[in-house]
Nucleic acid binder design. Structure first.
Lengths: 202, 202
DNA sequence: GTCTATACTCTGATAGAC
DNA sequence: GTCTATCAGAGTATAGAC
């Protein structure tokens, strides 16, 4: 769905630029980021950036496009026909893996929401809300059938987001508190499995 | 501990400026915020801002100073002599109240950490880490005594931070997903009480 | 396609009148 | 104490040579 790539070199440069832009936007947010920083990380001149993208805004938009989809894939993958506790633990696992493997994307998203979601409001009130309602209905059914413990299903989903994204977004704090010799994501995996197993056991 | 206030008017203007600065910094982060925005919200001219504070940096610093202390007070208040489950639920309650009553401060903090904590690293590696270690020891003792369920004590504290701050930092998303007619913090209070009661019950 | 040079705007900060 | 005027530098974006 992205703009027409022509040559292989063009595509490569676009990717290089987007990667550098993700570095900078994810740390400083849209307003705090500068083209100079992005150009430096990409190893290209500033005008050259603007040969590939019409504006700073366009780079940011391209990064946001599709981000929400990627972010929601783990939730989409939750199978209404599966075993409830397993499905939930699987969702937590996939969401944590995403936070571990794509921390910059997680922070880009966090920045966008912190700023009031000026560029994602529509998607959040639309796709996101709809998917959550759909999965919350599945959770409610499982609770009615006594297959998982009863608890507010929407806030249950919020809690998974909060607990997994925390390890990406607050990585600096997590590592500072843990100190050296720790693997935050490995420990988080074990901890969250315990939490949700105890919480959901009927 | 803040700079010498002289007249009552001076103190009032300083407070007005800091309040406006908190509005802007908490949304856009340090780099993304501008003095123009702060001046407009404060109803003062830009040079007048700089009569009260030597620089933009100084305003930001003043807001950060003491923020960590406020943020950690609920954890400090956890009593090693109290009843374990009650103490933990009390901590969650106080932390959630803080997120509800001071969402801008929560977002200011989130922005700072997201950006790699360039202005708070020392405090995080010092005071914060020390306090967490101290309280984790208390939690470990309670687990050894069989008074709360065994779980990684540091990640347990992380989980309280993540779950409470989420409602302030991702407020826009939470409200968009819940839709109208909800009180996110009231619902969160009930949900988190359930979560931590089930998790910690020995 | 990529660069140098540059136009033009925004931003933090200062000078100086009142 | 507060304002208008203004500066210097940074910022996004464009023009035009190669």
């Amino acid at each position: 769905m992205s703009a027409k790539p022509r040559t292989r070199i063009q595509q490569k440069n676009r990717d290089t630029i987007l990667d550098a832009a993700l570095d900078v936007f994810s740390i400083h947010g849209f307003r705090g980021a500068t083209l100079d920083q992005i150009a430096e990380r990409a190893g290209l001149s500033k005008p050259n950036l603007l040969y590939y993208f019409p504006s700073k805004e366009a780079m940011h938009q391209e990064l946001l496009t599709g981000l929400l989809d990627t972010w929601l894939d783990p939730l989409r993958a939750m199978d209404p026909q599966g075993k409830p506790v397993e499905e939930m633990l699987g969702y937590v696992r996939r969401k944590l893996d995403l936070a571990r493997d794509y921390p910059r994307e997680s922070r880009l998203f966090a920045n966008e929401i912190l700023q009031g979601a000026p560029r994602m409001r529509g998607a959040i009130e639309g796709d996101l809300r709809k998917l959550v309602a759909e999965k919350a209905a599945v959770l409610t059914r499982w609770m009615d059938e006594g297959r998982i413990a009863r608890v507010d299903p929407v806030h249950l989903i919020f809690s998974i987001w909060a607990l997994t994204q925390h390890y990406a977004d607050f990585d600096v704090q997590v590592r500072a508190v843990l100190g050296a010799g720790h693997d935050p994501f490995a420990e988080a995996g074990r901890f969250l499995e315990t939490v949700f197993t105890r919480l959901l056991q009927p």
